[in-house]
Design a binder for these strands. Structure first.
Lengths: 228, 228
DNA sequence: GTCTATATCATGATAGAC
DNA sequence: GTCTATCATGATATAGAC
């Protein structure tokens, strides 16, 4: 039982940090807030994690490690089943973003709290955060990028990369703002209760993302004179 | 000349605040950093703006006031020219997001600095920031929402609202991350110099947004039993 | 591993001379 | 309007008893 307490303290700090960083951001959250919410001593964060920055990094590692290995397994499985043929874009998009959105309903993986933290952090990357993100995302992004290249052989690679980027943006924002939507816009969508809204977010988002991914290619105004 | 100095100091503080808030976020930026970069006295912020929060609000008002009145004028003009017929979705999307992206090249309206600040702030809205955003965005969002309703009479309104939201997200992220892209993903898009990249961002983004806006409607899994 | 006490420093804000 | 000096507070981090 004495050892269980160690885990307990660590986890409680991680949970409190996750929630408070989500609400107030990294700089807006003090270690006093964290340790107070976790009901542990002020010195516990430094003992268990070394520093506030390391705590933040560990908050992300705890969730992203699982998420991205799940994404890789899923892609492996899909590619094994396809017997060498390229996957459909919808399969790839669904594997990548479906796994992410699935966390919303899974409290043991961080639930909406982590999703919103991730959404807001992707647009405020300070140096030490980028380090974790790059580390945790490097493999999975490379794999999915390659899968999309194979799935869309006629679309220029630069265009695919941009569109992947747009998809990430639409998703982070939708995630970060599941409550802020009503706040910034007072568009009260016709009364849907919050579980409904969440259930429907995935198909809604997926339609949008696939529509964008498969949109007609842009025409650039500056064309070379000889029309090449 | 003495009066010009007043404006000068205010503007210098606003410029420095804009840039530093963009890089380090609100909580991550101190008034000492701001006054030092603006080369004004530490007490000047409180004298001219009253508080750090008010400075942040003024940083947004200065840019959003112009941006959103521009958007309204443009919509007025389009609707006047259309003689009562609904606008095309592409016209609406172009008016809303084109105006925004146009700022990138216009240093006198804040340029990329303000765009990136806006992008990162939309996902970290603390109370006093939401106040400005709601205030500055209320009218323009309502007008564009209504225009989209008329332009897409067959699409359920809730769906249009969601898709507007997804479009906002894709755009903020693309804006906030014009440099972070290369950082999170090390996808080096084939060598495009940075002006090229910016010129091409608008058509690229527009194709994506319109593709998403006009995508087939999502099928929800939970259908009522009688199929209604 | 936990806790108290504290060192050290940075913060936002203001009072008051000029 | 600008400046210096300073207040009061809160920050991260750590030393050392238990």
């Amino acid at each position: 039982m004495a050892e269980a307490r160690i885990v307990d303290t660590r986890e409680r700090i991680l949970d409190a940090g996750e929630r408070l960083f989500m609400v107030h951001g990294y700089d807006g959250t003090s270690m006093r807030q964290i340790t107070s919410e976790a009901a542990v001593n002020l010195a516990a964060v430094n003992y268990h994690f070394g520093s506030k920055e390391s705590l933040m990094q560990e908050v992300f590692r705890r969730r992203l490690g699982w998420l991205n290995s799940e994404r890789i397994s899923l892609l492996n499985k899909l590619e094994a089943e396809s017997e060498g043929k390229p996957l459909k874009p919808s399969q790839i998009v669904d594997a990548f973003f479906g796994t992410l959105l699935g966390i919303a309903a899974d409290e043991s993986r961080g639930g909406m709290t982590f999703l919103r933290l991730l959404g807001r952090t992707l647009t405020e990357p300070s140096e030490f955060i980028r380090a974790v993100l790059m580390d945790e995302y490097a493999e999975v992004l490379e794999r999915y990028k390659q899968a999309l290249f194979r799935a869309l052989p006629d679309v220029p690679k630069a265009e695919i990369v941009w569109r992947f980027h747009f998809m990430l943006g639409a998703t982070s924002y939708a995630i970060a703002g599941t409550d802020a939507l009503r706040v910034i816009t007072d568009w009260q969508i016709e009364a849907e209760d919050s579980t409904d809204r969440l259930d429907r977010l995935l198909p809604r988002l997926m339609s949008f993302l696939l529509g964008g991914l498969r949109a007609p290619l842009p025409q650039f105004e500056s064309v070379t004179v000889d029309g090449k």
